[in-house]
Write a protein that binds this DNA or RNA. Sequence first.
DNA 1: AACGCGGCGTACCGTACGGTACGGTTCGGT
DNA 2: ACCGAACCGTACCGTACGGTACGCCGCGTT
Lengths: 227, 227
Amino acid sequence: MRKDAEALFYTTDRRDATLAPPTLTISDDTLTDRQKDVLDAALALLVHGGDGLTMTGVARRASCSKETLYKWFGDRDGLLTATVQWQASKVRMVPVDRESLDGRTLAIALEKFGRDWLSVLTGDISVALNRLAVSHAGQEKRNLGRIVLENGPIGMSKRCKPLLEAAREAGLLRFEDSDQAFRTFFGLVVRDTQIRMLLGEQRRPTEEAIATQARRAREQFFTLYGA
Amino acid sequence: MRKDAEALFYTTDRRDATLAPPTLTISDDTLTDRQKDVLDAALALLVHGGDGLTMTGVARRASCSKETLYKWFGDRDGLLTATVQWQASKVRMVPVDRESLDGRTLAIALEKFGRDWLSVLTGDISVALNRLAVSHAGQEKRNLGRIVLENGPIGMSKRCKPLLEAAREAGLLRFEDSDQAFRTFFGLVVRDTQIRMLLGEQRRPTEEAIATQARRAREQFFTLYGA
DNA sequence: AACGCGGCGTACCGTACGGTACGGTTCGGT
DNA sequence: ACCGAACCGTACCGTACGGTACGCCGCGTT
């Protein structure tokens, strides 16, 4: 099925299963500008309504030929995967520096974390991407779900846990399991917001509502885990 | 497009939009046993993998003719809607009686709430249904998302809030906004469990893990809102 | 100037699936 | 015994879409 040795990503017919896909992220420079344009077109179509993201549609929108799409991305799944990875590569949260950690900086960091997270989660692109990944996960195609997971909860966890642990060592927080602590924080921040957006609830929280919620989550988290 | 006056549910071409669909739930007796069989077949296919849920597939699995499907349910969306409603009508949580409310019974009620909720959420059927609804929500079809929402977070909220308010009146809890309180409880219970399952994470929590989590959520909720 | 390559646009093919039509069968009512 | 309604099974149609093939152009190389 795959024969063109130049295809960027090999997505289909992995018969060894089980193992992680070869690449979870696209380094920003594996893509030419033209390819980025194409992926942005795909993103735009995806956001505009999950359907409509058809090979012909992408080709038309990006003013390129379907043949080029297939040459670059192999097949439809390849294009989708690349699109998700491309978006993921754009959203890089700044890591928090663990130096100069006191109650105040920790609070600020956590609250900012929550705000950023909620902003991303409720954004059109994130909603569209998560919808796509969720759909895909229901069809033995685990790729996209994996990627979104890695750039969603798991990524958030990886960036957050060191901070929590540093805070514990600094005597600011008290918990046994940093994973449990993180997940509690996640719950306090996100609550039912994401699932409601995914299920089509129209109302998107304002920036102010997000800020309020992040602050409340931070307060509650401190109540539960503060030393 | 629709012409058969006998179709159970009118799903398509509602040009008035905005308003809620005529029925959000199927009363258990609007369906004949045969129809229930058909919907169960659809559910089975849906759980087995989001694709495969094709009209021909349902017909074959339920040993009925496609014509009958169309006569009963109008079109594909009608079948899906009916399927989701049918499942929703099966999962009826017992409401908690608000009499004899003290700290202990409240704790037990909340914890059981959390356990039941997590069990449902992580079940195959719930995951499949939520995936379907999420997919649909990405395609201007707001029906399914609406129904799942109503039987998910919103339904949970409707059943939970009276309990919380009763507990507040009994002096057991302290909060301003019962909605905020509920959503916090939701967050403490669900955390990132649901989104991870939806995105295809294989590991499904054991009954024991669920019980542990429900207990922790209850404890944390009391810490935050206990009087 | 000649050539080749990468890419655009379009036409084309195969298939899967939603939806319809129709003949045959069962079954309840009269 | 007869009739009609409901329903099964299957064949059929139209379309949408994934994937392929091909002609053409623009451009860099020699």
